[in-house]
Design a protein around this nucleic acid. Structure first.
Lengths: 242, 242
DNA sequence: TAATACACTTGATGCAAGTCATGGTGTCTC
DNA sequence: GAGACACCATGACTTGCATCAAGTGTATTA
């Protein structure tokens, strides 16, 4: 049966529409087959369903195939801290490797499909296929640099800069997946955005309203259109090509 | 000539006093020899000397052998953002893997010695020695989780909590190296501390003075003694065993 | 030992974002 | 379609930390 629904599991790495933006970058056809053999595709996750929880025994990393996943950890006093949003083609769960248990929880923001990649199999494959090892090192390094960007954002930037940066980041990640750079649906709540960016819901709401009034964006609930991407980049204080 | 000075380069992974807290954890003796063959030990870095700069072509990761290194990146508008402090036994430079160029600059806070580990050699060794691959995956994952902890700190915690957490973190890393848990020298300036924690120098200074008055710590310039580690942990809002 | 620069401390004031409160709007359930 | 509930928007008030402005060490050099 050919693929019809985006959450369909009758799919292989070879024919996945996400193609090289996921793991199989730079792999030979033979190696893609090997990867395909270890990837497990279960039923889709429903909204609010957990992929794994903080403290669970670490077994696998996951590639998001459709939908969106939020990663978060609990602070000492039980508050939630959102550490990232993961879109199709992105890999989640690499924080679990160091202590053999997940350091974050991962929860679906909407109905989502993921590919499970058992880590011990991935390790084996990585020793056999150097380009696989390299690619995985790169993915982890990317996670480090994106966390460091967030650190900078949190300690140096204003509320407006933070929110503009998030919108630009989502836009760029959409473009990578050949989706619209200017029009998309925010899969997460305002609360999640605020939590991720170190702001309160009220501030997020106010800033989004302000951007709307200023004509930088057009918002209707979760639907966002970036009307002035350059203007938004100016607000975000980022170089124009990023 | 036997080792006399802590910055001495006449040393090998086999006899390094840092032992397993660095890379050679869980390696067989033969494998340590292999690692030793690829590790390069240059002259010590003087204070304020750069190990590498943001944007430099990525070639190697570095193990700190003595001294202390600070990692930082420049924001769009040229401000500095300190992303981490690295002490003996810790590995720096893993952020460079993803784009084949360093995402941070690394600068010595005091006279320091480092072991250079060329990354392509490390990759080769990793395909040959699975425990090496695993250890390096773990190190990178650890970097991810520590960045995520910092993200939480920056977006959820007060100035007092941030500074208490930093003191506790340095204390714990000292303990790992079999050094005093309660008495140490801060190798970085107050400005660097503030920059790292998302605070101004003034706030750092005030909080440290307050901790001093409250009898939690005793400070004299860069020399710090933690007088009440439990009290400090209470201020930091962390579980007592971390 | 004086001179200079730089790192740190301390106090006074202002502001960006948090908190609290209220009302609106969309969405799910029965 | 009524009720319940989560989510979102917006106004009034509060506050923690930044900013500004001196002043006080503490190294470094001549």
């Amino acid at each position: 049966m050919p693929e019809t629904c985006p959450h369909n599991s009758a799919i292989s790495c070879g024919n996945c529409r996400l193609g090289s933006i996921c793991l199989p970058l730079a792999l030979e056809t033979d190696d893609v087959v090997k990867l395909d053999e270890i990837v497990q595709r279960g039923r889709p996750l429903q909204k609010n369903e957990h992929l794994y929880r903080e403290g669970d025994h670490f077994t696998s990393v996951y590639a998001v195939r459709s939908g969106a996943i939020k990663a978060y950890r609990l602070t000492g006093d039980g508050q939630e801290q959102v550490t990232g949003f993961y879109f199709p083609g992105e890999i989640i769960g690499m924080d679990g490797i160091s202590k053999d248990q997940y350091a974050c929880s991962a929860k679906a923001l909407e109905t989502s499909a993921v590919c499970e990649i058992p880590f011990n199999r991935l390790e084996e494959l990585s020793t056999q296929v150097p380009s696989m090892q390299r690619h995985f090192f790169q993915l982890m390094s990317q996670e480090i640099t994106s966390d460091q960007q967030l650190i900078t954002l949190l300690s140096k930037n204003s509320a407006e800069e933070r929110i503009a940066s998030l919108l630009i980041s989502i836009s760029a990640r959409n473009a990578r997946r050949k989706l619209s750079r200017t029009h998309f649906r925010l899969p997460m709540s305002r609360t999640d955005i605020g939590n991720f960016l170190g702001l309160t819901v009220e501030t997020v709401s106010r800033v989004i309203s302000r951007f709307n009034k200023q004509g930088l964006i057009a918002v209707e609930n979760k639907e966002v259109t970036l009307l002035d991407l350059e203007g938004l980049k100016a607000v975000a204080n980022v170089a124009s090509d990023s």
